[in-house]
Design a protein around this nucleic acid. Structure first.
Lengths: 130, 130
DNA sequence: GTTTGATTACTAGAAAATTAGTACTTCATT
DNA sequence: AATGAAGTACTAATTTTCTAGTAATCAAAC
């Protein structure tokens, strides 16, 4: 516990959290196995970062016969929200509309995607009304 | 010129780029003046980072009687797009729809904002059709 | 009970990012 | 020409992040 300077993860921390969110819960070895495998890292490197994540409060740990089993203390959706808020704040003046505007003027966004996005918005509007 | 390892900016680089985008063009002193002012930094710190940004190709520089005057080589909108793509890739499986879904389930999003977002989407759809 | 294997804790070093000092250059002013 | 002011280039130190080694612990297998 303790530490928690920033509410945002560093690059490597995020990579490991993604692995943990993927598997739900797991030991250092499990997490190492769930990593993208691009980079190849020492067991102790993963263990060290997991401990840091524990210190920062992003995960919790439980001992299961000798080994630590980690679980997310922050949900992925929660962190996604944080990331969006963070990006919105730094680059879009805190207005999500500006963010969406930039998103949809991306050329390689297919018609289907746009349509899907429209449906998401419409659903949300209907939910508010109802 | 040269350098350009990552296409993404570091935190401090981004902070300075935002200042430069704000003023359009300016000397180290101008940029220093346009910073949020939260942090207070030495003149030479700003100068060093601006040189790095030049090396990486994010800005261009021109001498105007002795002093360097910097201009963005990457538009803010371009970098906004990059950032969104980056976030979408790491955290939303590369699907912008998932990103939007997360964005709109943010509670402190007002009805007006949602409505605005809807209009942005609808406009984009109409543009595609026509 | 000793060895082996797996794991954590601690430590440290490498790499990347940030900050800023010092020396040098150049121009304007005296 | 000497002095001072402003700026850049170079260098270096600090901080943060990332990586991994070593030692200690503990349980199981022999």
């Amino acid at each position: 516990m303790a530490r928690r300077r920033s509410e945002m993860l560093t690059d490597v921390e995020l990579e490991f959290m993604i692995a943990l969110w993927e598997i739900g819960t797991g030991s250092v070895r499990d997490i190492m196995g769930a990593l993208d495998g691009e980079h190849q890292r020492a067991y102790t490197s993963v263990a060290t970062v997991m401990k840091i994540l524990d210190d920062k409060g992003f995960v919790t740990s439980d001992r299961k016969d000798r080994a630590l089993v980690y679980s997310p203390a922050v949900e992925k959706g929660d962190y996604e929200g944080r990331s969006l808020k963070n990006l919105s704040k730094t680059l879009f003046g805190g207005t999500p509309t500006a963010l969406v505007a930039r998103l949809v003027d991306n050329e390689d966004l297919t018609d289907e995607m746009i349509q899907e996005i429209k449906e998401i918005i419409d659903t949300r509007i209907r939910k508010d009304d109802g």
